[in-house]
Simulated assay, not measured.
Amino acid sequence: MAKAMARHILVKTEAEAEQLKKRLANGDAFDVLARKHSICPSAKRGGDLGEVRPGQMVRVIDQVIFKKPIRIVHGPVKSQFGYHLVQVFYRD
C-alpha cells in the first residue's frame, strides 16, 4: 500500500496562507512558521503529519499528498478545517 511523509500548515484564511507561502518562498523555515501560525495540533511538531496512507487525511489533502509533485509547497488548499499549505517529503 502507498505511503507518504508530509507536513502542513493550517490557517483560517486564504490570505494568511498566501502570506505564509510567500514567506516560505523567501526562505523562512517551514517548521518555524508551522509552530507559530498553524492551528493544527501538528504545529507542535513543525507541521509534521508523519507517515500517512491513502484515506487517512481529508480528501483534498489526500489528493495533494498522493498525486502532486514532492518537495514543493502546495496550496493554499481549502478543506472544512481551513486553508492548508502542504509539502510532501517522499512517497512510495
Rank of each mutant, 00 (worst) to 15 (best):
A2C: 06
K3G: 07
A4T: 03
M5L: 12
M5T: 13
A6S: 14
A6T: 12
H8S: 13
H8Q: 13
H8F: 11
H8R: 14
H8E: 09
I9T: 09
I9S: 04
L10M: 12
V11W: 05
V11F: 02
K12P: 02
T13L: 08
T13S: 13
E14N: 06
E14M: 09
A15L: 06
A15K: 13
A15H: 06
E16A: 03
E16W: 05
A17N: 09
E18V: 07
E18H: 13
Q19G: 07
Q19D: 08
Q19N: 10
Q19M: 08
L20D: 07
L20Q: 10
K21L: 15
K22R: 14
K22G: 07
K22V: 15
L24R: 10
L24T: 10
L24F: 11
L24Q: 05
L24N: 08
A25G: 12
D28N: 04
A29T: 10
F30D: 09
F30L: 10
F30R: 04
D31C: 06
D31A: 09
D31V: 05
V32L: 06
V32M: 05
L33C: 02
A34C: 12
A34G: 08
R35K: 14
S38G: 03
I39Y: 05
I39R: 13
C40I: 08
P41A: 09
S42W: 06
S42Y: 09
A43S: 13
A43V: 07
A43W: 07
K44N: 08
K44V: 15
K44G: 03
R45V: 11
R45S: 13
R45Q: 14
G47A: 04
G47L: 08
D48T: 15
D48V: 02
G50W: 09
G50K: 05
G50V: 11
E51D: 01
E51A: 07
V52T: 03
V52K: 00
P54V: 02
P54R: 08
G55M: 06
G55D: 12
Q56F: 02
Q56V: 07
V58K: 03
V58F: 01
R59P: 14
R59E: 13
R59C: 04
I61Q: 00
D62F: 00
V64N: 04
I65C: 02
F66R: 00
F66A: 01
F66L: 01
K67P: 02
K68W: 15
K68E: 09
P69N: 12
R71E: 10
R71Y: 09
R71H: 11
I72P: 00
V73T: 02
H74W: 14
H74F: 13
H74V: 14
P76N: 04
P76S: 04
P76D: 00
V77W: 07
K78F: 01
K78D: 01
K78E: 13
K78R: 15
Q80C: 06
Q80E: 08
G82I: 01
G82T: 01
Y83D: 00
Y83T: 02
H84T: 05
H84A: 07
L85Q: 01
L85M: 04
V86Q: 06
V86K: 02
V86R: 02
Q87I: 14
Q87M: 14
V88I: 15
V88W: 00
F89C: 10
F89H: 15
Y90A: 04
Y90E: 15
Y90F: 10
R91E: 05
D92Y: 12
D92H: 12
D92A: 03
